[in-house]
Design a protein around this nucleic acid. Structure first.
Lengths: 139, 139
DNA sequence: TACTTTAATCAGAGTCTCTGACTAAAAACA
DNA sequence: TGTTTTTAGTCAGAGACTCTGATTAAAGTA
């Protein structure tokens, strides 16, 4: 079986479950919005950085941040170090979503470990981390 | 690092490279179209099956098959066993794309194995296959 | 200062995906 | 058999996501 599909299947399962947990907890965000949201650092992040991290254009990132702003999950504040830039920051309203997502991730990882065993889980993680060295464009 | 991202990073790299190889060889298909195309069996596949396999609605699958048909990569023929159904079949024009994609996959897998080692590659595959047992909705 | 780069936005379009309603054929069943 | 339910696929319409190209304003550089 194709290694691509092998990677994708558990990834999709994970993503679907995290989204279900987050929206189930009352956070009404879409997948694309969530992908941006999770990359905003505690101190705020510039739009350009978000776009790069999420691998979309600045326009796309801006479009998603607009929506998140309307929903009250982020705010834009001037960047004190650069008059052109603005920092996107997570609001209090959104901050509760992080533990929800993290709890779901922990639950899933535990299930996976339960199924494939602690040893294989460690090997999986190790192999993926090493693979990231050559496949991660932001490294 | 989040296991989801760890899975996604190599997956995306693989997908991007396969698409680049295929479009570079002159096959002008989009990612969404390719996802459908690769699931069509040699004997033809029903739209409903394609939709399930690709995890999209029948309407979405139909939309993509329409485009592939206009581009000449697939054709729809009546299903002799069911008057309601039609079989989507790959045309001669599209058949050359498969070896292009497969060659690129082989190249990537070789690179990966080169980087992380034969042992880790085997462990990765084994862990992912086992993980598929609980994360693959079509199994 | 003049030129170039960078951060962000505006405008417009294309692609992908969905929900809901519908037709026709097959399957189930009374 | 005839009726009802299910299944395969399509039509219509809308929403979500993403892009290319052009523009503005601020920062960096020669």
């Amino acid at each position: 079986m194709n290694i691509g599909l092998l990677l994708y299947i558990p990834y999709r399962d994970l993503e679907n479950r995290i989204m279900a947990a987050v929206t189930g907890a009352g956070y009404d965000v879409t997948l694309a919005q969530a992908r941006v949201l999770q990359r905003i650092s505690p101190d705020g992040t510039r739009l350009t950085e978000l776009a790069e991290a999420a691998q979309v254009t600045k326009q796309t990132a801006g479009f998603l941040v607009d929506q998140l702003e309307k929903l009250g999950y982020v705010e834009r504040v001037p960047d004190p170090t650069d008059g052109r830039a603005r920092l996107v920051r997570v609001t209090e309203k959104a901050r509760g979503a992080t533990p929800v997502a993290e709890a779901e991730i922990a639950r899933i990882e535990a299930e996976w470990e339960q199924h494939i065993g602690k040893r294989r889980m460690g090997q999986l993680r190790e192999a993926l981390e090493k693979l990231g060295e050559i496949t991660d464009p932001y490294r």
